[in-house]
Amino acid sequence: MAPTELDPVLLDPTRLSIVSLLAGVEWAEFAWVRESVGASASALSKQVTTLGNHGYVEVEKGYVGKRPRTWLNLSQAGRAALESHVVALQGILETSRQAAEARQDNA
């Protein structure tokens, strides 16, 4: 992917939120991500599956005592995709700013 290309997977706001949350952590519990994003467990599970299918998010399941836990972490590919996507978004803002300045100069 070119460095300034928008990632179609991350154009979805919920998926972008999940990846942004995970970008700051080594791993996070599924319940914490659900609470932070404000999505239902099934909705989050669906988005995590999509991100997992693209190799952006890795899932680990286990138990703490008798309680089941799911941990999520961002893969290297996911981190690279987010960085690239952010650069592309910044590019859109920069283009818009330059266009506004050009309009002001012409006026």
């Binding site: 706001p13 972008l16 939120s17 942004s20 949350l21 995970l22 970008a23 700051g24 952590v25 996070a28 932070s36 987010l82 952010v86 978004l89 910044q90 803002l93």
Partner: peptide, 12 residues
């Protein structure tokens, strides 16, 4: 979207 990315990083 960029603001959301920053807010999520702070949240993390």
């Amino acid at each position: 979207a960029l603001q959301d990315v920053d807010e999520r990083r702070d949240q993390a």
